[in-house]
Design a protein around this nucleic acid. Structure first.
Lengths: 155, 155
DNA sequence: AATGAAAAAAACGGACC
DNA sequence: GGTCCGTTTTTTTCATT
């Protein structure tokens, strides 16, 4: 872990909420000059602490996609099959998140799709391309209460 | 749904990947002038299609938090209890995502926490503050294969 | 109504101390 | 880390379709 001082942690919490804040606006909350803040943000980006900046869209505005949560069970956990699945999931834009978990399922996926039909088509391809995926169950999200990627950074 | 033309959809797909691109850089992919692109982005922000811009952090760099997936079962789905739970989840920074789902569980939460102890403490508070939450099961993420919020916007 | 080009204003990114 | 200053980017304005 990179060591982050109090200023870094403050900045990280702020830019996780709003990455469009200017250095000057950030300076109102962090007692540093705008230049110092820019230097720190640049360093945090270079170190990879800040991986990227993204725009978060309103789901309704881009066509009311439905969120599905898929629980996968796999037969084998051989590294090359894992790598293949990982690559498959990465390439699939509809897959928002993928976790390798303990418990009943082996993987939990968060998938957005236009409807049940296109979701089933996606999962059919997943099974076809990854033979070691044995089966899956699905939960359909009737509502999304919260949707973010914020990692709380303690001050 | 706001109607979005081909240019808007192109821009949305680009800024979901990288919100730090300048208008001039975007102009290399979208056949519009930088001015037109900035006007469109401004409009998309004002319309709420682009809800916000956020920085995505490297989880490892901010202290190796663990991701937990909690499946909640609630006793009652009365609107005021739902609203209370929603507010509770919103206020809790460790809760990254919350879905109201069909199937066995009623809610699926994606939670990041420093360790099992702080996760259990969080869930204990959740139960204490929301009496209609009957029980929950937990899946612990051993690995995060993918982590994003991209909504594919068809061209 | 929306575009492209050109102007003004703001923000950024080094070099310096 | 703060200040200064040239450069880049955004924002506003304006003429054009």
């Amino acid at each position: 872990m990179t060591d982050l001082d109090r200023f870094d942690r403050q900045l990280l919490n702020l830019v996780q909420q709003d990455a469009a804040l200017t250095a000057e606006q950030l300076a109102e909350h962090v007692s540093l000059s705008a230049s110092a803040i820019q230097r720190r943000l640049k360093r945090l980006r270079e170190q990879g602490v800040i991986q990227r900046q993204i725009a978060v869209l309103d789901a309704a505005a881009v066509g009311q996609p439905t969120t599905f949560i898929a629980n996968l069970q796999v037969e084998s956990e051989r590294p090359e099959l894992m790598a293949r699945l990982r690559a498959w999931l990465d390439a699939e834009a509809a897959v928002q998140q993928a976790f390798y978990v303990t418990g009943e399922a082996d993987f939990v996926l968060v998938v957005t799709s236009w409807d049940a039909v296109s979701y089933e088509a996606l999962m059919a391809r997943l099974l076809a391309d990854n033979p070691h995926v044995r089966r899956y169950t699905t939960q359909v999200a009737m509502g999304v209460l919260k949707r973010g990627l914020v990692l709380p950074v303690p001050q």
